[in-house]
Design a protein around this nucleic acid. Structure first.
Length: 506
RNA sequence: GGGCGCGUAGCUCAGGCGGUAGAGCAACGGCCUUUUAAGCCGUGGGUCGCAGGUUCGAAUCCUGCCGCGCUCACCA
């Protein structure tokens, strides 16, 4: 037992735990069957009051207001909070003795009839009280009041580090946080709904891959002991989903985690969720139509509207979205006419924007760098940027008319890359050459260049039909729809550096 | 990785011109059988992130480290 004051608080609760057992009460029983959620009782009060039916409610004790031989308290369950009234006369000596040994944070179940207090507060008149779980650590509940109909929270549990590290407390104490993750679930459900009704098949492909591919990023590496070989956590599921198109599944999607060994910031977490979908016989124009419709469908389903406010900024997801070829965008926002610019001109332009560019960088990379510098931040409303340079798009098909470009688009919303799509490259000879080109980039020191995957090439050599593919970042979509300022607010357990000495109690 | 800021009781925060710590909530004891940020009386609780340095003396000033946040650069 430690010497910290926190351990004193724990010690007090452990003593109560013993006292509860001394009363012959098991503090960790097995089950309880509620009849109602808190909010249901409030919603159907009149009927419950008229019938006199007994209700059973379970939840976490979040506040008590004792009055000697009686007490009011609030329970919080998954849907809201409810006042209960515990009175010695009604519950009897034993249950009231138990009541005195309860703490904020304990889970309890109660049964009794509903009633309204003198001030009109809907409450449960407790007849029986059972302890469902004793909490031995203090729950840092804030105080709340209802002022002018608004919920006002005092001393809210707000330390970001603690909120992320102990997300369960964040969820238990901040209903708004629960709402974000309920919304996240609704987003994923809506995606499935949208795709399933359009005949897409949901599949699962390997997370542990002998080679990583499908994106330009550094991977996490692990090791298989029995096979004694390295394995990579996938940076993308793209190459496996395309194999399924080769196999004739025609319309497939996967919602899953990708892992990229890169920096962490407000819009990047080392593991993040992507929706990737592939459709045979389709091209990137079809993917644009699907993407617009999907975003609008999800927003409507989840928020009831295709317009939203993100961090004070109005964003309208209603289709159709503007489609701007990358070179046009660079001219419009950066004033640079790429077609008439020499490589040296582009290099000079990059310098003007004050960012480092590899001395030997080829034209496509220069164009992409200029785009990122002068266009991306401007793209607040949803926008398709189309027709990327071949050099930065090793898995995309060459543009049917535009030289040196591919049939690729990315969606930008709020200045973020929100999605990425191509007419998929299905020419195995061209694909092999692209991989070869990536290798030269890698040999020049680009450790994010893609690696040659012979097994994938073999699949392409067996024939992949023309295919459109689309990848959508799930976390960023949740951020937008939930108005979450950081990706950490859209991921239940965001990555945190390990911290030693969080607690000396054990 | 660079810059800026933060780290004090279980939680939310004061103190910060150097003289070894305060409040509210939570907790504990007492009173209270319709309260709702319940109330009243009383009590306990702190290696002031960690390690050095300056000083007679450091929560306070300096340096390094750790963690977190914001931001810039790179990546979705």
């Amino acid at each position: 037992m430690g010497q910290t004051p926190e351990s004193q608080l724990i010690e007090q609760r452990l003593q109560k735990l013993d006292a509860i057992r001394d009363l012959g009460i098991e503090p960790y029983p097995y089950r309880f069957e509620p009849t109602h959620y808190s909010v249901d009782i409030v919603a159907s009060f009149d009927a419950l009051n008229a019938s006199g039916d007994e209700v059973r409610v379970a939840g976490r004790l979040i506040v008590t207001r004792g009055h000697g031989k009686a007490a009011f308290a609030d329970l919080r369950d998954a849907k809201g909070r409810l006042q209960i009234y515990v009175r010695l006369d009604n519950v009897g000596d034993d249950a009231f003795a138990l009541w005195k040994l309860l703490d904020i944070g304990d889970f309890i179940g109660v049964s009794g009839q509903v009633f309204k207090t003198r001030t009109g507060q809907i409450s449960v008149q407790v007849q029986t009280l059972v302890l469902l779980t004793k909490a031995i650590r203090p729950l840092p509940v804030p105080k709340e009041e209802i002022r002018d109909g608004e919920r006002v929270v005092h001393d809210q549990f707000s330390d970001k580090e603690l909120r992320y590290r102990r997300r369960y407390l964040d969820l238990a104490l901040n209903p708004d946080v629960q709402a974000v993750f309920r919304k996240r679930s609704a987003v994923v459900s809506a995606m499935r709904d949208f795709l399933d009704t359009r005949g897409f098949l949901e599949v699962e492909t390997p997370v542990l891959q002998p080679l990583y591919g499908g994106a330009s990023a550094r991977p996490f590496v692990t090791h298989h002991n029995v096979l004694d070989m390295p394995l990579y956590l996938r940076i993308s599921d793209e190459l496996y989903l395309k194999r399924l198109i080769v196999g004739g599944l025609e319309k497939v999607y996967e919602i899953g985690k990708n892992f990229r060994n890169e920096g962490i910031d407000r819009t990047h977490n080392p593991e993040f969720s992507m929706l990737e979908l592939y459709q045979a016989y389709a091209d990137y124009s079809d993917m644009m139509a699907i993407a617009e419709a999907l975003y609008a469908f999800v927003a409507e389903k989840v928020n009831g509207s295709t317009t939203l406010e993100y961090q004070g900024r109005e964003i309208d997801l209603s289709p159709p979205w503007p489609r701007i070829p990358m070179l046009d965008a660079i001219e419009r926002y950066g004033g640079i006419d790429v077609a008439r610019s020499s490589d040296a001109d582009l290099r000079a332009a990059c310098k003007r924007f004050d960012f480092d560019i590899e001395p030997g960088a080829e034209r496509g990379l220069l164009i992409n760098a200029l785009f990122e510098a002068c266009v991306e931040p401007e793209l607040i409303q949803p926008t398709f940027i189309t027709d990327y340079p071949i050099a930065v798009s090793p898995l995309a098909k060459r543009h049917r008319t535009k030289k040196d470009l591919t049939e690729r688009f990315e969606i930008f919303i709020n200045g973020w890359e929100a999605a990425n799509a191509f007419s998929e490259l299905n020419d195995p000879i061209d694909q092999r050459q692209r991989f070869a080109h990536q290798k030269t980039l890698r040999d020049r020191g680009d450790d994010e260049a893609q690696v040659l995957d012979e097994d994938f090439l073999m699949a392409l050599e067996h024939g992949m039909p023309p295919t459109g593919g689309l990848g959508i970042g799930v976390d960023r979509l949740v951020m937008l729809l939930a108005d979450a300022p950081s990706i950490r607010d859209a991921i239940l357990f965001p990555h945190m550096r390990p911290k030693e000495g969080l607690d000396d109690y054990g």
